[in-house]
Nucleic acid binder design. Structure first.
Lengths: 219, 219, 219, 219
DNA sequence: GATGAATGAGCTTTCATTCAT
DNA sequence: CATGAATGAAAGCTCATTCAT
């Protein structure tokens, strides 16, 4: 990453890979966007695959560091989890392209895809650690921590991805509170216990607004 | 789907597409697996893309029907949600290949990918409907139903996908109870309120087994 | 040509061959236009090439008969030539598609192209016969009759073809008088001799009207 | 045309296209004849069509320049026309392949064919300009200049084409005098008026040799 | 007679990679 | 270090022809 050429290639590659996907991206296009000759890419990276793996490793590591940097020892598991949610959304907002690459290119039996999954597993383990800490501290109920961690990661990612494709300008961190609520208290959060006594089950009472109409009205 | 050749092509296509991804899959390979000549595929489907879209539409619709068929009017939203979780996992177990295709091929700006997302949106709307019904009935707390639905779909899918790649023989429905718990009551389920008194959360007491070691110990 | 199917195929083939050319025309398209199954064409014609040759032979023979039918023994060579010009133009007007096929498909070393040229040679010989008769009778000057005949045929055909592509509705026989003049008396027809004494070669005098402006003003 | 590879491809392409026609010519064949890899053609030309159009534009322009270069301001229209006839025949002799391509590939509604016709029209306009100048100067009689020009071009081309296929070694310029005569004075040339008194038109006297026998006996 | 599903050879085009400069 | 012309394997797709019904 020292040479400016390497940097330019790196950035062009993220752009092109996220836009086209690994298979459809061409070295010509990357070279053109990076303003270098095609041969130059091969001077710096052994192959298209290596370029991709390099990029994916850097990116996943960046995500991991971005999120972990915000966690401190003193936080409760709950606070850590909130932070994770918020920071992953922020990261996806800032590195939209990379977010797309992550979900698109990790699944398959190619070498680069296995490598990619290894990186994801590494990241998700960081989430799982928080889950485990929470269980251990009593904040969280006993559960399968791995499933919980992947579920959190997957829910955040797919939702983000969906939003990004539906509206590229959408501000992802906006979704944070919903995720926190859903994740910490579930769909049925009977908050302070004893609350929510008068559930208006009656038919027709305050019908839920049409799905189309109410998408995302923040409180 | 009447002709047996069409059926053979269809099945071979799922196989190959899930194994290789859309771009890497070749018509030669599909033809070979389907035991038909390459031209035969083109006799039945206009193009590789059309074959893929057909397959994806059939598959997504199958998923939707598979899940919705198990929901009945009398169920509470909570029961419906449990059913959705269980049935989606069952479907992913039975149609593993298709599950892989879903997450891998829906993200991008190609025509087939937009079409694919349209199908996913259709399915996720069905989940969202249950969320909305639950909110309406008071079973669920107010929240952004769309985010909740995508989160459920994404959490289930990515977790399933991860498991399938880690261990193709893994029995996905096993994860159901964890998801139900996580989804309905969140990480912090203080069930019956005031209950859960004797959780041995004391530090150091029965430390969670090493992450690698305990993956997925069902209760 | 007895069966109605054969006739339908024949007509569809002329349509398609003239529109697409031999190579680009497909048996599917011909079958569709003829409202028969593809196999039916092969029941009546051994191959695409045979269908084409059949059509070309019929057509060229038709042209030859169409023109020759109008020539009578009593006519002078000059009148015969006028008739040939007029009738070929009429034929090209009525069988536009075939006219296109003629010039497009006769040149090459494929079997069908040799066969096609044989047919053309046959037709051009009929023209040459009139030239020879005219020379013999003293109406025409001595010249190479073959070159004259091909020149007449080629001049008429290419001009017609050009007009047909520029304006498909153009009425070809309109061009007859120009051809007759050009052919019988040449560009420099000083009819009654003694005419044209003061050739104004001076530069710049009365510039010729713009080409675009005067196209085809009939007298 | 700078690179030697481009030149080699260009020349191979003319060869193959003229031999096979646009549709039947294959890029493999062209590559083989040019002694380059198939990919190399695509490095220099975007597509088969572009290669063809390039070749056709170069060729038609070459024909036009070849002919126009021999015309000088001082010439009379008659001399110019003689020159055009002679030079076009010379060109067709030297660039036989291209001559074949011209008449074979200009007729149709494909993009390349329209483009081709545009080039032909450009060339024929140059002929028409001479016709117009002759009419203006009084050398030529009034006539439709466009029809005359296309007629000249077509007569020359088709006749040449026919000869080339009948005998590839035939020396086209030999035909020049016949064309000049035919074109300038028509079939019925009563030359200098009153001249040509002793044309032996007596019946039976020196009957024209059988058509087959005398093809092209130059005076 | 007529059909149309099936075939596979053959085509154009793409693109990661190499290498002489 | 950097370049970009050259490569050739591989891919998607077409279509004349066949043949069982």
């Amino acid at each position: 990453m020292t040479s400016s050429k390497t940097r330019m290639i790196f950035e062009a590659a993220i752009d092109i890979f996220s836009e086209r996907g690994f298979e459809k991206a061409t070295m010509d296009e990357i070279a053109a966007k990076a303003n270098v000759a095609k041969g130059t890419i091969y001077y710096h990276f052994k192959s298209k695959e290596e370029l991709f793996v390099f990029l994916v490793e850097e990116g996943t590591e960046l995500l991991r560091e971005h999120v972990l940097a915000k966690l401190s020892e003193q936080m409760t598991a709950t606070d850590k989890m909130r932070t994770i949610i918020h920071e992953q959304l922020t990261f996806f907002k800032d590195y939209k392209d990379f977010c797309i690459i992550i979900l698109r290119e990790a699944w398959g039996e190619e070498q680069r895809q296995r490598q990619f999954r290894r990186m994801l597993v590494h990241y998700v383990h960081s989430i799982e650690d928080v889950v485990l800490a929470g269980i251990h501290s009593g904040e969280f109920a006993e559960t399968d921590s791995s499933t919980a961690a992947w579920s959190i990661f997957g829910g955040l990612s797919i939702t983000a991805l969906n939003h990004l494709f539906a509206d590229p300008t959408f501000d992802l961190p906006t979704l944070g509170p919903f995720f926190e609520d859903l994740l910490m208290r579930g769909l049925t959060h009977r908050d302070s216990c004893a609350v929510q006594p008068e559930i208006p089950h009656e038919d027709g009472v305050a019908p839920p607004p049409s799905r189309e109409a109410r998408k995302l009205e923040l409180p």
